[in-house]
Amino acid sequence: MPTSLFKKLASLAVTLGLVLLGAGPAAAAPPRASEPVGIDVSWPQCGKTLPKQPAFAVVGVNNGLANTTNPCLAAQLAWAGTAKTPAATSQPRVSLYVNTANPGLKGSWWPTSNTYKGIRVANPYGNCALRVFKACSYMYGFAKAYDDAAIRGVSNPASYLWWLDVETENSWQGDKSANAAVLEGMTVYFKGIGARVGIYSTSMQWGQVAGSVPATSPLAGLPSWLAGASSLTGAKAFCSNSGLTPRSRVAMTQYISGGLDYNFSCR
């Protein structure tokens, strides 16, 4: 999730003595009230008092793993409702993010067919029933997206922008194309219900998990939400970076300040 990603990046910067993604290691000052920045929250913020009326809000649906539910989802969605009108930025007033992974056969559940919850899925990678791993990876992603939309407690899931949180600390395979297939399955499900989809990651982690995807992939052209900045100034600079997939634009960037994740809308 976004919060854990920052902890991981910060730890690497301290251990290696490096400057994270070109930004200084010093903590950023809290954003000025005039800055139209959003905040993202999830299970690490359960029970914490959150600032009212961010410019926009992003709420994590899972509890750190792709097959879990954030225990504070309802309360945090209610908090997100205090966000200001969307006129201040190009971001939705409230959007969601979900954990992603490809645990393969080591997961607590792994698909065995191209059908989930009675839905017969047109699988571009073949028949999962024949144990075609890439086909089953696609089905795994489709199934986790279905669960996120249908059983986690999200009302009107089609109305949201869903960000796919891609981090190396989650379970992934050495086969990058199979990992991308998971994300494609999620994307196809969310778009199939009429929702919008984006990708959250860093260029480094995206490269390690999914690598380069073809221009024909459902992931191509999805908006990118880039993590790793250590200040609002750095987050603004990230807006000029390349997107994570072909034809992707950087729509939002993230930085940490005062123990919270803040987000800058690039457009």
Rank of each mutant, 00 (worst) to 15 (best):
A150T: 14
A122H: 11
V58P: 00
G185C: 05
M252S: 06
A23I: 07
F133A: 09
S137K: 07
A101M: 10
A88H: 13
I39S: 02
V213C: 01
V132G: 03
P36H: 08
L5T: 04
A88E: 15
A27Y: 02
G17Y: 12
G192P: 13
A158Y: 06
A158D: 04
D148N: 12
F190K: 02
A80S: 11
K144P: 01
D147K: 10
G207E: 01
G194S: 07
T3R: 08
V58W: 10
A122M: 11
M139K: 01
D261R: 03
L226Y: 08
G126R: 02
P44V: 02
K134E: 13
Y116G: 01
N99Q: 15
G17V: 15
S90G: 12
S248Y: 02
F6H: 10
P86Y: 05
V132S: 03
L20Y: 14
T68L: 04
Q53E: 12
Y262R: 05
D175C: 02
A178P: 01
P214K: 06
D165F: 03
N67G: 13
L20I: 15
A29K: 12
V94W: 14
L73N: 14
N99G: 13
A66G: 09
S159K: 13
G22Y: 15
A122R: 15
V250A: 04
A180F: 02
T233K: 07
P36E: 15
G107I: 08
L77C: 11
Y160D: 07
N241Q: 13
L219Q: 05
V182D: 13
S113N: 06
S42M: 00
N102E: 15
L12T: 15
A74H: 12
Y97M: 11
V188P: 00
A143C: 02
